[in-house]
């Protein structure tokens, strides 16, 4: 590289040596033309990278498909359903009063990722726990959305891959996962219907 520059320099020098012979050095706004041309090529090359890189980002159809409507009417307390949001499982669970009480009883200081159940649910709808069904450790789907499945020591969710255990507010209590199960953006359209995303 250094060598290439040296060659370019020497040719420029030679060139200006011969200016006396009536050849004018071509400058663009005070920059030698070869420097300007190589810079322009560099700028062009960088611009070309933009479409080549951004083509790998989600396409318009993927982005558009990113809201999901979920009907809550058939979910009984203590049970939940797995919906699909952005091609990933979405846990929609109706907590029993006992589960709510258990979650509220935990002091925040005991939590790895301190959050209250209130913060993780919508106002006045504490019984609706809506989280992604994606373990925050390495992305497996935890068990426990229905009561027949292993819900772990804390009655919430249990990830069979690496043993992370979540409580009834889907907060991490034990195991390698660093964070609580993620609560996506959603809103209640009616008492029995939510729109996620």
């Amino acid at each position: 590289m250094a060598d290439t520059a040296a060659t370019a320099d020497s040719s420029t020098t030679n060139d200006s040596d011969h200016d006396s012979g009536g050849l004018r050095r071509r400058d663009v706004l005070g920059i030698p033309a070869n420097v300007a041309a190589v810079s322009a090529a560099g700028v062009g090359g960088l611009v070309v990278l933009y479409p080549l890189i951004s083509q790998m980002a989600p396409s318009a159809d993927v982005l558009a498909a990113s809201t999901t409507d979920v009907d809550l009417s058939s979910i009984e307390a203590g049970q939940g359903i797995t919906a699909v949001f952005r091609k990933q499982p979405l846990f929609v669970r109706k907590l029993t009063p006992k589960e709510i009480a258990e979650a509220d009883a935990v002091p925040l200081s005991e939590l790895r990722d301190p959050e209250t159940l209130e913060e993780r649910t919508k106002e006045g709808r504490k019984e609706w726990l809506i989280t992604m069904g994606v373990c925050t450790h390495l992305g497996c789907v935890p068990l426990g959305i229905t009561s027949e499945q292993n819900r772990g020591d804390y009655g919430g969710y249990f990830c069979p891959c690496h043993g992370s255990q979540y409580d009834t507010a889907a907060r991490i209590r034990k195991g390698p996962a660093p964070k609580n199960l993620v609560v996506p953006d959603y809103k209640f359209d009616t008492d029995t219907k939510i729109t996620v995303g």
Binding site: L52, Q55, S59, A60, D61
Partner: peptide, 9 residues
Amino acid sequence: RDVNWGWLL
């Protein structure tokens, strides 16, 4: 239609 800059590519 949907891929970013797909038409150009």
